[in-house]
């Protein structure tokens, strides 16, 4: 489990993870914020429903895919947290249409 190196204080924002409010450092990387909140897994695979979590943290592995504000397939490691952001685990294939609240 990842933890902050030290308590630096600083600004925080509230995001919603699977419907539960979580206070995270302002302007932090979303994947980092989710890891330190103990969010696991980030997604399950479409092929075998296997649990996944970030592997590369630099945008190449796509194992950190989550649903952000209703949009599926977002790379958490390339996102910055925003106050009120809604994050959901992505189960299997990305849902589309009504269920996925696609644009």
């Amino acid at each position: 489990m990842f933890r902050p190196l030290d308590d630096k204080g600083g600004k925080a924002v509230a995001i919603e993870i699977e419907g539960r409010s979580q206070i995270v450092p302002a302007a932090s990387n979303l994947a980092a914020a989710l890891l330190s909140a103990g969010f696991s897994p980030f997604r399950t695979t479409p092929a075998g429903a296997a649990p996944r979590q970030p592997y590369c943290m630099m945008g190449v592995c796509f194992d950190c895919l989550v649903e952000i504000d209703g949009l599926p397939n977002r790379q958490a490691c390339l996102e910055t947290v925003r106050e009120g952001m809604h994050v959901r685990r992505q189960q299997g294939a990305a849902a589309i249409g009504e269920k996925g609240k696609a644009r």
Partner: peptide, 13 residues
């Protein structure tokens, strides 16, 4: 590298 990115950019260990 992922571990190091978490340390460098997010201060996580």
């Amino acid at each position: 590298g992922a571990g190091q990115i978490l340390l460098k950019a997010s201060r996580l260990v």
